[in-house]
Design a protein around this nucleic acid. Structure first.
Length: 871
DNA sequence: CAAGTGCATGGTATT
DNA sequence: ATACCATGCACTTGT
């Protein structure tokens, strides 16, 4: 197993050499994911996150003194479980438990080697201490009593008991063991400590059952290699415990004739959290408490070869439980859940099922066509989906087809979660759902993830940014919203209360890292970014330094730009432009000169352009209706802008929406798409911009000297060097080519030569293709006296650093014919009449490209050229 | 032309 | 390195 994970405890970060799927062979402890360094148990952390326990922190392990950090220490769910007083880290606790196992099993004739597969940690004296502890013996007996009362002989019976038990009985059981429902959930596994009940955390040990047949080595290994037994995950004090016997799947019902222990052998020792719907009765007792979210390891049954990934572990609230089953005597077995992807929730009507889940909980299918499966929803509707698979990479990809009506009926969208449960007895599959909440984790929150579902439009950019949580919200809210999500969309048909927050941050799921963004969202986002660009203003205390480079003046500011107040521009039919701004205080619209840039805060008294309206008491110039028109006009303007941009994008980069979105998120400006023209005004850069203007130190007034080493000058020099060296390189290549041609006239006409040449030229072209446009741009910019400052100085060929050419000499050289320059810098071999007569390097580029195109018969090259020339 | 279907591909998580 | 799975895309079928 690779140590691929690190402890999430920031103070620890130790490698956790475990398998996240299978975890440690910690059947007893149930903490599949332990950091042996700090004792953090991640299954519990998940649980704690869900319960949002208020206290987290550090304690010292009573056994080893190691510092323990766990989010659920407040609940003492992990460590105050042995009544020893104090806290024990999971490592020690686990060791102590394993010690019991070892002892028990050895005493029962189990092969010590078998036990050794579990006891990966050597027993310590602590173990003996634990084993000798009378409390354990007592609890052992207690457990045994409970077990025997409910499942006198074997597991199968326990199942029946559980299923047939009246709610009252169940409650009684729960009451009898309020802090530690102990149930032998698996044949022979009752030899293991089966539960660490979080509320009080009493560790209880089962009594040895010598009357039962022993498992063979293989079975035992398999059993013990499973990470989780029936651990009740975080049931707070006073809440009913889950009853967790084994529950066979519908398919396995047929196997009841099999001896119980055989079934046990076949079973996998992760057990379903059979949840008596009777627990709903007890929900009264929780009035006033936040609803429970139960995270249960799903039943590992059926044909599933793989353990479910934690992200598919079902979380279920009591309300959902109540929803799922109206029959108090039935038992809900949460199987798994899945966050809907865009394609799941889309119109295709295919819901991709996690492979492990499909194989574990759905009927076996051998044909790709699969089988129809009937699944009930929370409203009681029964849906029939086609459960099938596609071959995929020597594997299978399972899908439920025809889910669209169901998804629509539940008003589900990408990011929402569907849960699959089973009602026992009967094995009826039930499909529940949970609407996405705004309590995305911080990772999600960092990215304005928009759903691209049908509702994408409602996730407006502003919504996203205004409402994105800047930090992860408390899990209390998570719990509440999750619950409310479940409730507001329940069978009552209540419309979900869509808060802005809800729109703003959809939980797309941890697996889905792709930026789901509808094209319009992307445009909206980009345009909004551009708008933001438009709002950038010089810093308030701006006193720009004017820097002149190549006859162009640049304003330099010491401070980064700030966002100015948003204004609206209107254009009258006469062509007259107006700018309107809204007063921060009275919200009245005031007309401003078109070229005015407002500071972030602006109110009527700042209206120096219209003294008759420089107070908030002054009436507005326009009526309410006109205001509406104003806003509408602004919207129209924006729409046109979007349309225009869309067109531009289609022309420029047909499939670049993702890049566009990314660029928008990252803040890349697309100067060529910007509505406003290019400008040399420096403040049109975002804060933190690392462009050459923004990073340069404030320099003196006036022109830069030729010896100036400021970033601007250095970059200009560097670019010039790059340009010249590229020319040199190209010319050398042409020279070689000419030489070859001269030596072998049929070179470009016959097989090998032609191929070679074609390849060479193609390579040459391709090599230069990317740079050509850039060079062209640069050259064009140079020729028109403009310098592109929006690039990072490091982007250019750094190997040219230190070439020792002065800027002035480069500028001079640039104005010379190329061959003169070449001679000057020592390129003596470049003697091409075309080159010498080239009026400009742009022309040189073009000719070179043409030559390449015509010289090579390669299709793609020609195409490339055509495209290039079209550009 | 739209919708449906089946497979392929590539990103990401897990081993 | 591998498996999973979200989604793209080509092809087929339906309207």
């Amino acid at each position: 197993m690779a140590a691929s994970n690190r402890c999430m405890n920031t103070s620890c970060r130790a490698a956790i050499p475990h398998d996240w799927t299978k975890g440690w062979p910690l059947g007893s402890a149930g903490y599949a994911h332990l950091c042996l360094n700090c004792g953090s148990a991640y299954e519990n952390l998940v649980f704690c996150d869900t319960y949002h326990l208020e206290e987290t922190g550090w304690r010292d392990c009573s056994f080893c003194g190691k510092r323990i950090h766990c989010g659920c220490i407040a609940s003492k769910s992990m460590f105050e479980c042995l009544d020893y007083g104090g806290i024990g880290c999971t490592s020690c606790v686990r060791r102590s438990r394993l010690g019991v196992i070892r002892r028990d099993e050895i005493s029962n004739g189990f092969d010590a080697v078998t036990v050794g597969t579990v006891g990966f940690l050597p027993p310590t004296s602590v173990e003996d201490q634990v084993v000798r502890n009378g409390i354990n013996e007592e609890k052992l007996l207690q457990l045994c009593n409970i077990m025997e009362a409910n499942e006198p002989n074997h597991f199968q019976q326990s199942q029946r008991v559980d299923r047939s038990a009246s709610p009252a009985q169940n409650r009684g059981e729960n009451l009898r063991s309020p802090f530690g429902e102990v149930r032998s959930s698996f044949l022979n596994m009752n030899k293991l400590p089966v539960k660490c009940q979080p509320s009080v955390g009493s560790l209880t040990y089962s009594k040895l059952d010598t009357s039962r047949p022993h498992l063979d080595l293989k079975d035992m290994k398999e059993s013990l290699s499973q990470p989780s037994l029936n651990i009740t995950l975080g049931v707070p004090l006073g809440t009913p415990n889950f009853v967790v016997p084994f529950s066979g799947s519908a398919a396995e019902e047929d196997e009841k004739s099999i001896l119980p222990f055989q079934q046990g052998q076949r079973s996998r020792p992760i057990f379903p959290k059979l949840i008596k719907t009777g627990t709903a009765v007890n929900s009264e007792a929780r009035k006033g408490m936040a609803p429970l979210v139960r995270i249960a390891r799903p039943p590992a049954e059926g044909r599933g070869k793989n353990q479910l990934l934690p992200r598919y572990w079902p979380r279920i609230t009591d309300q959902e439980l109540e929803q799922l089953s109206g029959d108090l005597n039935s038992t809900i077995v949460p199987l798994f859940e899945k966050v809907l992807s865009a394609s799941d929730a889309g119109r295709i009507g295919r819901l991709v099922l996690p492979k492990a889940c499909a194989e574990a909980y759905f009927p076996p299918i051998s044909q790709s066509e699969g089988l129809p499966v009937r699944i009930q929803d929370v409203k009681g509707n029964e849906w029939t989906f086609q459960f099938r698979f596609w071959p995929n990479n020597n594997s299978r990809m399972y899908v439920l087809e025809g889910v669209t009506p169901c998804i629509q009926s539940m008003q589900l969208r990408a990011g929402d979660t569907v849960t699959f449960s089973r009602i026992d007895p009967g094995g009826q599959l039930v499909m529940g759902f949970r609407k996405a909440t705004n309590s995305t984790d911080i990772q999600d929150a960092k990215i304005p993830t928009l759903s691209n579902g049908s509702h994408s439009g409602d996730a407006s950019f502003s919504g996203v940014f205004q409402n994105l949580p800047l930090r992860a919200e408390g899990d209390t809210s998570l719990r509440k919203s999750e619950n409310s999500g479940g409730r507001t969309n329940d069978a009552s048909g209540q419309q979900p209360v869509l808060t802005i927050e809800k729109k703003g941050a959809r939980n797309i799921g941890s697996k889905n890292k792709r930026l789901l963004m509808h094209s319009e969202d992307a445009l909206e986002l980009r345009l909004t970014w551009e708008e933001a660009q438009d709002l950038l203003r010089p810093p308030p205390s701006a006193n720009p330094t004017i820097v002149t480079i190549d006859d162009h003046e640049f304003e330099e500011y010491d401070e980064p730009p700030v966002f100015g107040k948003r204004t609206i521009f209107t254009v009258r039919p006469t062509g007259e432009q107006k700018q309107w701004a809204q007063c921060d205080d009275c919200s009245k619209w005031r007309r401003l000169p078109v070229d005015v840039l407002l500071p972030p805060k602006w109110s009527c008294p700042d209206n120096v352009w219209d003294l008759s309206r420089c107070t908030c008491s002054a009436p507005e110039e326009i009526s309410t209706k006109e205001q509406d028109n104003l806003l509408r006009a602004s919207k129209d303007f924006k729409k046109r802008k979007i349309a225009k941009s869309q067109k531009s994008i289609q022309e420029l980069e047909p499939s670049g929406l993702d890049a566009l979105a990314s660029a928008a998120v990252l803040g890349d400006t697309m100067a060529d798409l910007q509505e406003s023209g290019t400008t040399t005004r420096h403040p049109r850069h975002r804060p933190g911009c690392t462009c050459i203007v923004c990073i340069q130190p404030p320099s003196g007034k006036g022109k830069h000297k030729s010896t100036c080493t400021c970033n601007v000058c250095l970059t200009v020099k560097r670019r010039f060097k790059t340009l010249m060296l590229r020319k040199k390189k190209r010319q050398s290549e042409r020279e070689v080519e000419t030489l070859l041609k001269d030596r072998n006239p049929q070179f470009d006409e016959t097989g090998m030569g032609g191929t070679l040449r074609g390849t060479s030229l193609q390579t040459n072209y391709l090599e230069n293709e990317g740079s050509q446009s850039r060079i062209k741009d640069e050259e064009a910019a140079n020729s028109s006296g403009q310098i592109d400052l929006n690039c990072h100085p490091d982007r250019e060929d750094m190997e040219l650093e230190g070439a020792g050419l002065s800027m002035m000499s480069l500028v001079e050289a640039a104005s010379q014919p190329l061959d003169s320059y070449s001679k000057q810098i020592g390129i003596s071999s470049v003697t091409n009449e075309q080159q010498s007569s080239q009026p400009s390097s742009v022309e040189s580029e073009r000719r070179l490209s043409e030559e390449v195109c015509h010289g090579s018969g390669h299709e793609s090259t020609s195409d490339g050229c055509r495209e290039h020339h079209r550009d």
